[in-house]
Computed example of a mutant assay.
Amino acid sequence: MGNLKSVALTLLLSVSILHLPFAKSVWFLNYHIHITNDLPLLNSPPGKPNLFLRCKSKDKDIGDKAMVKGQDYTWDTKINALQTTLFFCNARWEGRKRRIFDAFVANRDDKRCLEYHGSCMWSVREDGIYFSRNNVTWFNEYPW
């Protein structure tokens, strides 16, 4: 009888969760993280990387990326069931500055990135790392 109650409770919880408003958007949506190098060239010659990124989560290393001006670093992720998905990046502006920043935090970005088709857009600039939810209005979330 105990197993039957356990199965019934599990089934009831599963059906209830699927009817929550956030369930479809959070657990089944691919989120697209974009980081663009918008740093000025300054003393760097065109075509030579001036931004170096290393992005990863607890479970997945996206890898190193040497970026030239205007280049985009992109990957996709889903939010895990506990909503603890987190990707962070180490950004290094060649010979100038370095900053670690959170590129995707499930409980921060689930709704704000969902507004623009699941895209989280970042722009690395001279005075910091900017976020946009619509690719029009940008906010400096991580000053150097």
Rank of each mutant, 00 (worst) to 15 (best):
L4R: 13
L4A: 14
L4P: 00
K5E: 12
K5Y: 11
K5M: 13
S6N: 07
V7L: 14
A8T: 04
A8S: 05
L9Y: 07
L9N: 12
L9H: 14
L9M: 11
T10E: 09
L11I: 02
L12E: 06
V15S: 07
V15F: 11
I17W: 00
I17P: 00
I17H: 05
L18I: 11
H19E: 07
H19P: 01
L20Q: 15
P21A: 01
A23L: 02
K24C: 04
S25P: 04
W27M: 04
W27K: 04
W27N: 05
L29W: 06
N30V: 04
N30G: 02
H32P: 00
I33A: 05
I33W: 02
I33N: 03
H34D: 02
H34F: 12
I35Q: 02
I35H: 05
I35P: 00
T36V: 10
T36D: 06
N37E: 09
N37C: 06
L39M: 10
L39I: 08
L41H: 11
L41Y: 07
L41Q: 11
L42Y: 06
N43E: 12
S44C: 08
P46R: 10
G47R: 05
G47A: 08
K48V: 14
L51W: 07
L51K: 00
F52R: 06
L53G: 09
R54W: 04
R54V: 04
K56I: 02
K60T: 15
D61R: 10
G63V: 12
D64L: 11
A66D: 08
M67P: 00
M67N: 07
V68M: 12
V68G: 09
G70R: 09
Q71P: 04
T74N: 12
T74V: 15
W75I: 02
W75R: 13
D76L: 05
T77G: 03
K78Y: 10
I79R: 00
I79N: 01
I79L: 03
N80R: 10
N80T: 00
N80G: 08
A81W: 15
L82C: 05
L82Q: 11
Q83F: 03
L86W: 03
F87P: 03
F87C: 02
F87V: 01
F88A: 14
N90R: 14
N90E: 07
R92F: 03
R92S: 15
E94V: 09
E94M: 07
E94K: 15
E94I: 10
E94W: 07
R96N: 09
R96F: 13
R96V: 13
R96L: 11
K97R: 15
R98S: 13
R99E: 06
R99N: 12
R99V: 15
I100G: 11
I100V: 13
F101G: 06
F101I: 00
D102L: 07
D102T: 14
A103D: 07
A103L: 04
F104H: 02
V105G: 01
D109F: 03
D109S: 06
K111G: 03
R112I: 11
R112S: 01
C113Y: 00
C113W: 02
